Simulated scan of single mutants.
Amino acid sequence: MLTTIGFDADDTLWQNEAYFRLTQERFADLLRDHAEPQHLSERLLEAERRNIGAYGFGVKGFTLSMIETAIEVTEGRVPASVISEILGSGRAMLDHPVELLPHARDAVEALAQSHRIVLITKGDLLHQERKLAQSGLGDLFHAVEIVSDKTAQTYQNVFARHGTGPEQALMVGNSLKSDVIPAIEAGGFGVYVPHGVTWALESADEPQGHPRYASMADLSTLPEFVRSTR
Rank of each mutant, 00 (worst) to 15 (best):
H103I: 00
H34N: 07
I67A: 12
V147Y: 15
G56R: 12
H96P: 01
G136F: 09
G58E: 03
A35G: 02
F62M: 11
D149G: 14
T74K: 00
L64P: 07
L137W: 11
R130V: 00
V144Q: 10
A104V: 06
E46M: 09
D95Q: 10
L101E: 00
R105I: 14
G90W: 05
I67N: 01
L44N: 05
H96M: 06
E109F: 04
D139Q: 14
D106Y: 14
I71Y: 12
V59C: 05
V59S: 04
V98C: 03
G88Q: 00
K60M: 13
K131M: 00
Q113K: 15
E145M: 10
G136W: 10
H103C: 02
I71D: 11
L140P: 01
R77N: 11
D149V: 15
L94E: 09
G53H: 07
Q113V: 05
V59F: 03
A110W: 07
P37A: 03
S135K: 03
D124G: 09
G53L: 09
H39Y: 13
L119Q: 11
V59I: 15
A92T: 06
R91D: 06
G136V: 08
A152N: 11
V73E: 01
G56K: 07
E75I: 05
L44C: 09
L94F: 06
D124W: 08
L45C: 02
E68M: 09
H34R: 06
Y155D: 05
K131P: 00
R116P: 04
G88E: 01
I83P: 00
G90R: 05
S89Y: 12
K150E: 10
D33T: 04
V82K: 01
G58A: 07
I83M: 04
H127M: 02
T69K: 01
N157P: 02
N157V: 15
L132H: 02
A104G: 06
A47F: 06
G76H: 08
A110G: 10
L100C: 12
E129S: 12
S84V: 00
E48P: 09
M93N: 01
A104F: 02
D33F: 03
L44T: 04
G58I: 06
L94K: 03
L40V: 02
V78T: 11
L40S: 03
S41M: 04
H103Q: 08
L45I: 05
S84H: 07
I52L: 15
G61E: 10
I146F: 14
I146W: 13
R49P: 03
E42K: 11
S148G: 15
K150P: 10
T121N: 11
P97L: 01
I117A: 04
L45N: 08
T154S: 14
Q113A: 14
I52K: 13
A133D: 03
N51I: 07
D139R: 14
F62Y: 14
L87Y: 07
A92S: 12
G61D: 10
V82C: 00
E85P: 00
A110D: 14
V144K: 08
H39W: 13
T63Y: 03
I117Y: 07
S41K: 12
G76V: 12
E48W: 07
S135Q: 02
M66W: 08
A47D: 04
F62G: 09
A133R: 10
H103P: 00
H142C: 08
K131H: 01
G123H: 11
I67H: 05
H96Y: 04
